[in-house]
Amino acid sequence: MSSSSSSPVSSKTTIVSKETDPNHVLSIAQFFKSLTLPDPSLDDYTSHDSFSVLLQGNIKALSVERGRISCSVVVTPSLANFYNGLHGGVVASIAERVSMACVKTVVSEDKPLFLGELSISYLSAAPVLSEVLVEGSVVRSGRNLSVVNVEFKMKETMKVTYLARATFYHSLISKL
């Protein structure tokens, strides 16, 4: 079935199986449309690196030690996905920032770092208005790389919601 004025699919190149219920296609099309609607509550976050500003107000450091960092994150509507849980991209961003901060507590400041790998397991959703404890710890740090584990737990129940593992490579500074 190709798109026509009565079709719920917006693209003329979209192909829909004849066995698919048109109501199901309509609900999927509406779902995708709702994801692309502008959200006026995010108008303050349209500048360069505005995601940092968006996260800053929601992350509070609890403790910083050599190789370990703990912080708290409140899941606000601006950090939520369509299903009112903490957005996966926000989880990834927090995991990257916490793991980078952990590495910086054990690696010399003159060594530039770059994120080589970031693996995340999404185990359970953290709902809007909940508080999540984020704990990062350096698992291994050597001459050329560092590995960090990051756990996200619901503050109220201590249930693990997300797990992340980041590998950072240490770039040597050229002596030219």
Score class of each variant (00 low, 15 high):
residue 118 L to Y: 06
residue 169 Y to G: 13
residue 147 V to C: 02
residue 151 E to F: 11
residue 123 L to T: 09
residue 157 T to W: 05
residue 106 V to N: 09
residue 102 C to H: 09
residue 105 T to L: 01
residue 122 Y to F: 06
residue 122 Y to M: 01
residue 102 C to K: 11
residue 113 L to Y: 11
residue 105 T to E: 04
residue 123 L to E: 03
residue 154 M to C: 11
residue 117 E to S: 12
residue 168 F to I: 02
residue 165 R to M: 08
residue 109 E to P: 08
residue 125 A to H: 14
residue 145 L to P: 06
residue 135 E to L: 07
residue 124 S to V: 06
residue 166 A to P: 07
residue 133 L to D: 06
residue 113 L to T: 11
residue 168 F to K: 02
residue 128 V to W: 09
residue 138 V to C: 00
residue 152 F to L: 03
residue 150 V to M: 06
residue 111 K to A: 15
residue 139 V to H: 04
residue 116 G to P: 02
residue 147 V to N: 00
residue 169 Y to V: 11
residue 137 S to I: 01
residue 165 R to G: 15
residue 109 E to W: 08
residue 131 E to Y: 12
residue 166 A to W: 02
residue 113 L to K: 04
residue 167 T to Y: 05
residue 158 M to I: 08
residue 108 S to W: 14
residue 122 Y to A: 04
residue 111 K to G: 14
residue 126 A to K: 03
residue 118 L to F: 12
residue 130 S to R: 00
residue 143 R to F: 15
residue 104 K to L: 09
residue 166 A to T: 14
residue 123 L to Q: 03
residue 124 S to K: 09
residue 119 S to Q: 13
residue 112 P to M: 06
residue 108 S to Q: 15
residue 158 M to R: 15
residue 132 V to S: 02
residue 102 C to M: 07
residue 139 V to A: 03
residue 129 L to E: 13
residue 137 S to D: 01
residue 116 G to T: 09
residue 107 V to I: 13
residue 130 S to H: 09
residue 102 C to V: 15
residue 108 S to N: 15
residue 114 F to N: 09
residue 165 R to N: 15
residue 137 S to A: 09
residue 134 V to F: 00
residue 167 T to D: 05
residue 139 V to M: 00
residue 149 N to S: 13
residue 127 P to L: 10
residue 127 P to W: 05
residue 137 S to P: 02
residue 128 V to Q: 14
residue 143 R to C: 11
residue 105 T to F: 02
residue 149 N to M: 05
residue 146 S to R: 10
residue 164 A to K: 01
residue 152 F to E: 02
residue 105 T to P: 01
residue 108 S to I: 12
residue 118 L to R: 12
